[in-house]
Design a protein around this nucleic acid. Structure first.
Lengths: 152, 152
DNA sequence: CCCACTCGGTTTCGTGAAGCAACTGACGTT
DNA sequence: AACGTCAGTTGCTTCACGAAACCGAGTGGG
């Protein structure tokens, strides 16, 4: 994504997209969620240019979504692991996947499934009301919050 | 996002991002979810260039996420409404917002809240197991699905 | 000892998308 | 007649992306 900044928007979506909204970034996070950790693995898995991958990994480390750790000395080798905030991005990423599964999947069904490791059940992403449980999209309202009209 | 295509990836996330992963696109959908419908409203709300907005709206209409309807004759005026698939994008978009609220919010709290119109309760996005209900991110496994190894 | 190869990048350079400003054109208002 | 609004299009500049070459530390083979 060019420029990558969205100035003058008091919006958590815009702020989040400034970190993960560039081209490739969410796919890098998807790969990280699937267990990819090393530079060359990302490279072959994504088909991304090396300089762009280098840039994105640096930025993700800088914003606290990935952690760069040395897994070998002589020669020095690094790997990139998701931090806790990074792992929380599974929710929006899998929600995008779920949408694609529903609207863009091929004839053979979705390429990947999400399972609950404890019971083996299928997992979906949903809106959940604190009182009522799952909520259909039609029953949602987005309203002003406390941080809306503050200089930032 | 440049090029905007992610070739050779059998992945619903990549396919979804080819439609909505370009710069500005998810913010246009956010605005549409907030009730913005007209060209100039998007323009002033986003601070986007006119030609880019024109391009994004065309592409979103083409991919069935927005609908272009005439709301006035003489002069002809159009508005852009979300389709049902488009409204379903509230889930990933609000999940991104929720992540931003948690990790990037200012001192005054989140700028926007999601409420359940029926009961007025707060709404959050969550992983939901078909057997167990809400699932923490640490208990998820992403496994191969039926559509993984098919020529596409 | 020399050559090839791996991993994890950096450098260089051409292309093309984004951003800005100006223009268009149909209409409405004063 | 002059001005304003809405919904764009056109032209120009800038900057991010993509491809390929290069780099440096180390491993393995002959």
């Amino acid at each position: 994504m060019l420029g990558r900044l969205y100035d003058g928007q008091n919006c958590s979506i815009a702020r989040t997209l400034e970190l993960v909204g560039e081209r490739w970034t969410l796919l890098i996070i998807r790969d990280a969620l699937l267990g990819v950790r090393r530079f060359d693995q990302f490279l072959t898995s994504l088909g991304i240019a090396r300089n762009v991958l280098s840039d994105r990994l640096d930025r993700l480390v800088e914003s606290g979504i990935l952690e760069r750790t040395q897994y070998q000395e002589r020669p020095v080798r690094w790997e990139y692991n998701l931090t806790d905030p990074g792992r929380e991005l599974a929710l929006p990423v899998l929600a995008l996947m779920q949408w694609g599964d529903r609207h863009l999947a091929g004839p053979n069904g979705p390429p990947r499934l999400v399972r609950h490791t404890i019971c083996g059940g299928g997992v979906a992403q949903q809106h959940l009301c604190t009182n009522c449980g799952p909520v259909p999209g039609a029953e949602l309202a987005i309203v002003a919050g406390p941080g809306l009209h503050t200089a930032s």
